[in-house]
Design a protein around this nucleic acid. Structure first.
Lengths: 209, 209
DNA sequence: GTAAATAGGATTGGTACCAATTTTGTCAAC
DNA sequence: GTTGACAAAATTGGTACCAATCCTATTTAC
């Protein structure tokens, strides 16, 4: 387990926290895997200190778990936990539905539609990570329309907390196709200012995924 | 600024993060104050390393802000930010109202009432920190009734993000008295299973405080 | 007298080293 | 053959030191 190559140079300047997080979300580190500091040190080409800080941050975000004198391992997401977080996301994302509809201009709608298209486009050619990020971009754009700057980070954090194993989600292609279709439906609901429909769609969308 | 006594021994074993956070919430460090590592080191009797980690965590929680090569200073809470966070809290705490009412037993109600009493009792004799914690305990107990384990940490974090200056909140006694009264009204609403009333109370309670 | 430049002091932040703890592998006893 | 104890290797976590950066006060030139 102690033999892994150094990654591309483009990531040189990025924060180790995000690099590790990305690798966890990409499925490089499976849930339960112990993240040894020396391995991370060599893999990302960073000092011990930065690795430690990164792991501590991820532990705070509940992405990894810290066991004293044992180390850090990727968090094993519980079934109950997933439901709880889904419920919170539903409360928040449906909670802003009215505000989003009220504030969304026709330009906002077309931006959203474009993002929905991009997600659909990546359906065949994209990697898991690209799909994940395209999906994230769509939801971020939606949340942004509420005009609540704080909501952003809250939802982002919630997402990170469950998406430890994005591979286990979205296992079937048909599931992703449904998601893509729902994105477009959501855009339509916003365009037609149908709040109730939008809320129903969001709840359905978050729960099933 | 580099002369401060060591604190009581009871806090010896506690995490530096919480100690610093508590001091910020108590108003020891006013918003905008620069937190010098050496000062914290001597004040809490901890190593430089633990202080650094604590500051990094607090920076992640947006309680303090980090400026490279300058240090960490207590975050200056924005007015807009306060409103945004209040809105999120309202979405979440009203969102679970139905579930709370459905699940709350008569014993749960009496526990809540007891916590509401405790808050009211501290109104005259308690310190700012004690009041803050009693209020926190009440809200935590309420949130717990929803049976969503994750919601706990989310709301706790949201609270920490604004309560950087609890002194500026609750400046008048009458304001606190209103809060105490609202706590009791909330308990009554739960007891009578009046969901709409409860939601109205919560929104009112969070917004005004 | 004012403003720029420079030297000094203080603070942060990274690197390296060392101690404490745990796990793994080996050997012996039952 | 299995179980338990013991030793060695590996890993974590803390401490101390040093370089880089920034702020401040004094001096000097105009």
């Amino acid at each position: 387990m102690t033999g892994s190559l150094t990654i591309t140079e483009t990531d040189e300047e990025r924060d180790a926290t995000q690099l590790i997080l990305q690798d966890i979300q990409s499925g490089v580190y499976a849930p339960g895997t112990w993240l040894k500091q020396i391995d991370l040190e060599t893999r990302y080409g960073r000092g011990r200190n930065e690795i430690r800080r990164a792991l501590d941050r991820l532990a705070l975000k509940r992405v990894v778990e810290h066991v004293p004198n044992r180390g850090y391992h990727v968090y094993l997401s519980d079934g109950k936990q997933w439901d709880d977080i889904a419920e919170i996301r539903i409360m928040l994302e449906t909670g802003i539905a009215g505000k989003v509809i009220a504030r969304a201009t026709s330009m906002d709608v077309s931006v959203l539609r474009e993002l929905a298209d991009r997600f659909q486009g990546l359906l065949h050619s994209g990697t898991v990570l690209e799909l994940y990020e395209a999906n994230l971009a769509f939801h971020r754009a939606y949340v942004d329309l509420a005009g609540n700057a704080e909501l952003h980070s809250v939802i982002a954090e919630l997402r990170q907390r469950t998406s430890s194993a994005p591979v286990s989600q979205w296992h079937t292609r048909s599931r992703i196709e449904v998601s893509a279709a729902e994105h477009h439906q959501m855009v339509n609901a916003i365009e037609q200012k149908d709040e109730l429909w939008l809320k129903t769609l969001i709840e359905q969308h978050i729960r099933q995924k």
